[in-house]
Amino acid sequence: MDSVEINDKRITMLKGDITTQATDAIVNAANSTLLGGGGVDGAIHRAAGPELLAECKQLKRTLLAGHAGLLPTGEAVLTRGYRLPAKYVIHTVGPIYKEDSDPEQHLQRAYENSLRVADHNRLHSIAFPSIGTGAYGCPLGWAASIALTTIHNFLQHPTTLTDVRMVLYSQHDYEVYRAVLQRITA
């Protein structure tokens, strides 16, 4: 585990399973349907239980009705965490790297909007996965740089967030993010 402090706020890197994080919120690297899927999205839906899927279906009918029931890339919405140790799940959609017209902007917005949703709801702690680096094909080092730069910049301003975690599933991903964090904060 590595961490840095920024204005009495902490960014922590750790290797592990995001579904076990006892934070105010965890971020789901969701697909635009919000109905679960593979990777982090599927793991979060399985751990949270069927109530999460029911709430996501309700969001599709109400909040997302104007978007054909789909969460646009880079946007973020909040649900309860149900059976997770986290109180809430913030769902965001990262870019599909080879298909997106501006993957850098969309990935940055996915992190920014997730942080804004947490701050708007006066949350203090949040855990992120590596958004977009699985099935969506974003290069790991590139995505790590965008993620950590965006988080670092967000924490330069007043926010209720004091504990931001990057939870990486593999040792390789952890090492890449750790090196990027060291470079950004050097």
Rank of each mutant, 00 (worst) to 15 (best):
Q58N: 14
H157Y: 13
Y174H: 12
L64W: 01
I11D: 14
T159A: 11
V176C: 09
I151T: 12
L84T: 05
I146L: 10
P139K: 03
K98S: 15
G69N: 05
R122M: 11
C138P: 01
N121F: 14
L84N: 08
S170L: 05
G38C: 04
E104M: 13
R178K: 15
I96N: 12
R83L: 14
S114L: 03
S3W: 15
E104V: 13
D100I: 03
Y177W: 06
T73D: 01
A47S: 13
I18R: 06
M1A: 14
V27A: 05
V164K: 00
G74D: 03
I151S: 05
D41Y: 14
G66H: 04
Q182I: 13
A65H: 04
I131F: 06
T92E: 10
L181Q: 07
T19D: 02
Q108P: 12
L181S: 06
T33I: 04
K87G: 15
Y97F: 15
L148C: 09
R116K: 15
L14Y: 05
V180C: 09
Y136Q: 11
P72E: 05
Q156M: 13
R116F: 12
Q156N: 12
E55F: 01
G37D: 06
R178P: 00
G141N: 13
Q21P: 12
L35A: 09
H172W: 14
I184E: 09
Q108Y: 12
R178T: 06
L63Q: 13
A86Y: 00
P103F: 02
D163R: 00
L34K: 08
I126Y: 00
Y82A: 03
V89Q: 07
N113E: 06
A48T: 02
E51I: 02
Y177N: 08
Y97S: 07
A68C: 08
Q182M: 07
T159K: 14
S114E: 12
G66Y: 00
Y82F: 14
T92L: 05
A29Y: 12
G94A: 06
A29Q: 08
I18C: 03
S32K: 15
F128D: 02
R83H: 14
L59E: 00
L64H: 02
A186H: 07
D100G: 02
N28C: 06
R46M: 08
V93L: 06
A135F: 02
Y136W: 12
I146M: 04
V77L: 15
G39W: 09
V4E: 13
A144T: 09
P95Q: 00
N121Y: 15
E51P: 11
D41P: 12
A22L: 08
H152M: 09
P85M: 11
A65C: 03
E175G: 02
I44V: 08
L34P: 11
G49R: 02
Y174T: 10
F128W: 06
D41A: 10
F128V: 09
H67M: 09
K87I: 04
T160C: 11
L52Q: 07
T62R: 14
I26L: 01
P129I: 01
S32I: 00
P85D: 03
V167P: 01
A47W: 03
L14T: 11
H157C: 09
L34N: 07
Y88N: 13
L52F: 00
G49L: 06
G74A: 05
R83T: 10
A43T: 03
V27G: 04
S3L: 10
R183T: 14
S130Q: 07
H91M: 02
R183Q: 15
L64Q: 01
